[in-house]
Design a protein around this nucleic acid. Structure first.
Lengths: 191, 191
DNA sequence: CCCTGGGCTGCAACTAGTTGCATATGCGCC
DNA sequence: GGCGCATATGCAACTAGTTGCAGCCCAGGG
């Protein structure tokens, strides 16, 4: 149940409509807690019902009506309570590792292609996060308070994507060696 | 939907009962795809119904009856099909990062304690995985085929836990500096 | 005037995972 | 004989996330 709290802290930083929240999740919040607009709207509704947030309608200027949400005192108290609650790391699940575990039943070139794609996706995330880092935190050593916290969150995201990139790269290299070794062995056996 | 395939590849390696599967998940499979025994039993039932696995009962010796499952040809075909299906990295979700993002609303010492606990949990995983690596793959450079794949899966788990350990350590150090800087500033302000 | 696309809200039905719990067999010990 | 624990199986009800879809407002361009 961290989506509620991710939304609460995001609204605490700046009241927003559901649509704006979805946009903020796509740009930054979603880098540490991903959520779709359907989840966000449903969760906003539920939090309205239990009075963790309140909303008011804002007429757009040349735009449709917007419902802007903000955190109530109860919502803030709930977030503070949750901060002090002991959490556990989530169970680990990595679909591509399941594929790798069962690689011998499939086609090496296909799995190499899959890992190459994932490696490139992660490389893209690394690059995007690094640009974000350069833009928002050019001098990390000088950071304090909230900006330090935000920087540390981004740093975690960067390290995670870098690790996944490096691992996929290691796997691609190893499987390619296996493929060329097997092909050589097959050629030698056939020759 | 990778649990089905994690179970299929695990049974392909060695037919097992639900209870044995749960044990194997606790020891190794669960390091890349975590699952509880309730999930495993339910998924075994469903895969029996769609004939991806079949089961037969085996009387225990001084033990209760066991239902041993094995993969059918259809189940094997489904796994191979799934191997060639393009997957996407899962959306990223890290509860403790949400807490860090909202750290300014809470107590720094409490958050430091939380990150310290997580760091130590990850350190424990690193140590356990390293022992597993030493025991099962003392000479990684010589590996080929299935054993190479299994090793690469474990390597990914190790790198992931190491990254989480390093990140939590970085956060603890930064928050402790902040705490002591704030305390010094508070003391100076009060003095 | 109509169409398209962006802005904006939101629901139903589903899957995947979790929590809580139940039941039975068998063995060893008190 | 009963208790506790390990072995072994499995369900119901719930939460969290996903998929698929629906609908409305507004502006701009053809």
């Amino acid at each position: 149940m961290a989506l509620e709290h991710a939304i609460l802290i995001t609204l605490e930083e700046r009241p927003s409509s559901g649509y704006e929240l979805a946009r903020r999740f796509d740009r930054s919040v979603g880098h540490f807690w991903a959520a779709t607009h359907q989840q966000i709207y449903r969760t906003l509704k539920r939090m309205s019902e239990i009075r963790w947030v309140t909303s008011h309608e804002v007429p757009g200027e040349g735009r449709p009506l917007r419902k802007v949400y903000e955190v109530t005192d109860e919502g803030r108290d709930e977030f503070v309570r949750w901060l002090s609650e002991n959490g556990e790391p989530a169970p680990y699940r990595q679909e591509i590792a399941v594929k790798l575990r069962g690689a011998s039943l499939g086609s090496l070139p296909t799995l190499i292609a899959e890992f190459t794609r994932h490696r490139d996706l992660h490389a893209g995330w690394v690059a995007a996060f690094r640009r974000m880092e350069q833009r928002d935190f050019p001098d990390p050593a000088s950071l304090t308070g909230r900006r330090l916290h935000h920087y540390l969150v981004l740093s975690g995201g960067i390290q995670s994507e870098e690790m996944l990139f490096a691992w996929c790269d290691q796997v691609v290299a190893a499987l390619e060696r296996e493929l060329s070794g097997t092909s050589s062995q097959s050629a030698a056996a056939a020759g």
